[in-house]
Amino acid sequence: MDTTSPTPLGKLGWTVGSATCMDGAVEGQRLFQVIPGNCADHAMEQASILLASARRASYIGVMDDEPVLVWASHYLSEMAKALMDDAHMGMHKSAKA
C-alpha cells in the first residue's frame, strides 16, 4: 500500500483505517472498517449525515412502533462513531507531523 498522503491535505488530516464497526459472526471479527487515506473533513461530514439519519430513524421507529427502524438507527450510529473515531485518530497523527 502507498504510504504517502494524498494531496491536497484536508484541514483535519486523513483517516488512518483503524476504526471498525459491527460485530461479525466470528468472535473478535468486525464486519466493517474505515479505509485509510480519506479526507477526515469529509469523514466528519458523512458522520454528521449518518447521525442525523439515525436520529430520525430512531424517532420514527419509536413513535410508529417500528423496531426495524430502531435497529437501523443503532447501525447508523455505530458507523458514524467509527468514522468520527478514525478521523480523530487522523487529526492527532496530522498534528504530530
Rank of each mutant, 00 (worst) to 15 (best):
L31H: 06
E66W: 01
P67W: 00
I60F: 13
R30E: 15
C21Q: 05
P6K: 05
A19H: 03
L69P: 01
T20F: 06
L69A: 00
S53K: 06
M79T: 14
G10K: 11
I35V: 10
M89I: 04
T15I: 02
D41Y: 07
D41A: 04
D2N: 07
I49W: 05
V70M: 11
C21A: 14
P6C: 08
W14N: 05
S73H: 01
P36A: 07
D41K: 11
T7W: 02
G37F: 08
L76Q: 15
Q33L: 11
Y75T: 15
S77H: 09
D85L: 01
L9V: 14
L69T: 00
C21K: 01
H74K: 10
D85C: 01
T15K: 01
I35P: 00
K81I: 10
K11F: 13
S58Q: 15
R56V: 06
M22T: 13
V34P: 06
L9E: 13
A80S: 05
N38M: 14
I60T: 11
T3H: 14
A80T: 02
P36W: 08
G17H: 03
C21E: 06
I35T: 08
F32N: 03
W71C: 09
S5V: 04
A43T: 00
L50H: 12
Q29N: 05
Q46K: 02
V62A: 12
Q33P: 07
M84K: 09
D86N: 07
M63P: 00
H88D: 03
S48W: 01
A72W: 00
M79H: 11
G37H: 11
C39A: 09
P67Q: 01
C21T: 13
